[in-house]
Simulated assay, not measured.
Amino acid sequence: MPKIKPDSESSLKGKKVAVVAAKWNSFVTDEMLEGAVSALKAKGIEEDDIISMRCPGSFELPLASKYCIDHLKADAVVAIGAVIRGGTPHFDYVCDAVTRGITDLNMKSGVPVAFGVLTTDTVEQATERAGMEKGNKGAEAALSAIEMLLLKEAMKHEGS
């Protein structure tokens, strides 16, 4: 059975990647956005091919990501948000909606949409995961988007 091996980063030339970050909890998402853009550049995505934008909150990430796919023709999207538990069930509804929305968008569009949404119990947990102390989860999501984009490209070539 043939083994599909993603091409190197050289096959990323000209690929457009959108990074959509929620404005809500921007003290966390700002760091994650910076980490994502830095990771994309480090993997060879040209600055002109990185589109970064903001949406109101994590709940809006699936639709904002869809806009990037439909209108900007993004080859991949990195969705960044931070949902921090409060004293009401709102946390559960937002986490469920954004997870379901991004999952559905991946399956329906076929475009990699990386899940860079923190779902934490405390502000401290969120800030740790947005900085370098426990790894920047925005950067990790960007790397995941790149890996999926490379896998998709490898499968295109395998089938031809």
Score class of each variant (00 low, 15 high):
residue 116 G to A: 08
residue 116 G to R: 12
residue 116 G to V: 13
residue 116 G to H: 08
residue 116 G to F: 08
residue 117 V to F: 09
residue 117 V to G: 10
residue 117 V to R: 12
residue 117 V to D: 11
residue 117 V to S: 11
residue 118 L to M: 11
residue 118 L to H: 09
residue 118 L to E: 04
residue 118 L to Y: 06
residue 119 T to K: 15
residue 119 T to F: 10
residue 119 T to I: 05
residue 119 T to G: 06
residue 120 T to L: 10
residue 120 T to P: 05
residue 121 D to W: 12
residue 121 D to P: 00
residue 121 D to F: 14
residue 122 T to D: 07
residue 122 T to Q: 10
residue 122 T to W: 07
residue 122 T to I: 07
residue 122 T to S: 15
residue 122 T to H: 08
residue 122 T to V: 06
residue 122 T to P: 04
residue 123 V to C: 03
residue 123 V to H: 13
residue 123 V to N: 06
residue 123 V to P: 00
residue 124 E to P: 00
residue 124 E to R: 12
residue 124 E to S: 12
residue 124 E to F: 09
residue 124 E to C: 00
residue 124 E to L: 14
residue 125 Q to Y: 04
residue 125 Q to H: 13
residue 125 Q to A: 09
residue 125 Q to V: 03
residue 125 Q to W: 03
residue 125 Q to P: 01
residue 126 A to E: 03
residue 126 A to S: 10
residue 126 A to I: 11
residue 126 A to L: 07
residue 126 A to C: 06
residue 127 T to K: 11
residue 127 T to L: 15
residue 127 T to R: 09
residue 128 E to D: 15
residue 128 E to R: 11
residue 128 E to S: 03
residue 128 E to P: 00
residue 129 R to D: 01
residue 129 R to W: 02
residue 129 R to P: 00
residue 129 R to Q: 06
residue 130 A to G: 10
residue 130 A to H: 02
residue 131 G to F: 03
residue 132 M to C: 00
residue 133 E to Y: 05
residue 133 E to W: 01
residue 133 E to I: 14
residue 134 K to F: 07
residue 134 K to H: 11
residue 134 K to P: 00
residue 135 G to F: 04
residue 135 G to E: 04
residue 135 G to W: 06
residue 137 K to I: 02
residue 137 K to T: 02
residue 137 K to Y: 07
residue 137 K to R: 14
residue 137 K to Q: 08
residue 137 K to W: 02
residue 137 K to V: 05
residue 137 K to C: 01
residue 138 G to H: 04
residue 138 G to W: 06
residue 138 G to D: 05
residue 139 A to G: 12
residue 139 A to I: 08
residue 140 E to I: 13
residue 141 A to G: 07
residue 141 A to S: 12
residue 141 A to N: 09
residue 141 A to I: 11
residue 141 A to Y: 10
residue 142 A to E: 11
residue 142 A to M: 10
residue 142 A to Y: 12
residue 143 L to H: 05
residue 143 L to R: 14
residue 143 L to I: 12
residue 143 L to G: 12
residue 143 L to S: 14
residue 143 L to Y: 03
residue 144 S to M: 15
residue 144 S to W: 02
residue 144 S to Q: 13
residue 145 A to P: 02
residue 145 A to K: 06
residue 146 I to A: 03
residue 146 I to P: 01
residue 146 I to Q: 01
residue 146 I to D: 02
residue 147 E to P: 00
residue 147 E to W: 00
